[in-house]
């Protein structure tokens, strides 16, 4: 990994941490508060691609593990990794990987804006929703012994918010690509 890639990942990790400091927003039609931090995870994949995106998320998790309150709501410390919801955090790594990989392979600079946006949306949806919830729900089911289906039903209320975030990530990802392209492209 070049120094520039490491710096980009670290800067994005700082953005993810800063997003966690914003107060959660309540949207009228969704019964749970939405935090901007998981949006940051999708954005990491969309803007930086798989490798650097994963590095950014891993840095955030390392900061949390060593006792800095970097996660939304001022959470931090090893307790974060010993909670029933730890699977979602581990899911972030896979989420950034999937989002980044799909973005890299599907989006190219000579596509139309609509195609780019749609590809980014699919990437953020597969990574930020499917992958994150896949791991999160599986872990929750395993740790609490409540069974996969019940764990999934318990998480259902959060999914509309995350789908909305995937849409925002797609729009923002395309805007960043127009203004300051960083996504690794296939030759």
């Amino acid at each position: 990994m070049s120094t520039r890639d490491l710096v980009l990942a670290a800067l994005f990790a700082a953005i993810i941490v800063a997003l966690g400091m914003l107060p959660p927003i309540m949207l009228g039609f969704i019964p749970v508060p939405i935090t901007a931090q998981s949006l940051g995870v999708m954005l990491a994949g969309v803007v930086l691609g798989a490798r650097r995106g994963v590095t950014a998320v891993l840095l955030v998790l390392v900061l949390a593990a060593i006792g800095l309150p970097v996660l939304s709501g001022g959470r931090g410390g090893l307790a974060v990794f010993m909670a029933p919801t730890t699977g979602y955090l581990i899911g972030w790594v896979l989420g950034a990987l999937v989002t980044g990989y799909v973005s890299q392979t599907m989006v190219s600079r000579d596509q139309s804006g609509l195609a780019q946006g749609a590809s980014f949306f699919i990437a953020a949806l597969l990574g930020g929703v499917v992958a994150v919830y896949g791991l999160g729900v599986t872990y929750l089911a395993f740790v609490t012994g409540m069974g996969f289906l019940k764990a999934f039903v318990g998480s259902l209320a959060f999914i509309p918010g995350d789908v909305l975030k995937a849409l925002i990530a797609a729009l923002a990802g395309r805007a960043v690509m127009v203004g300051y392209p960083l996504l690794p492209q296939r030759a």
Binding site: A9, A14, V62
Partner: peptide, 8 residues
């Protein structure tokens, strides 16, 4: 990397 994040 950790130092950079805390710095920024």
């Amino acid at each position: 990397g950790v130092g950079l994040v805390i710095r920024f």
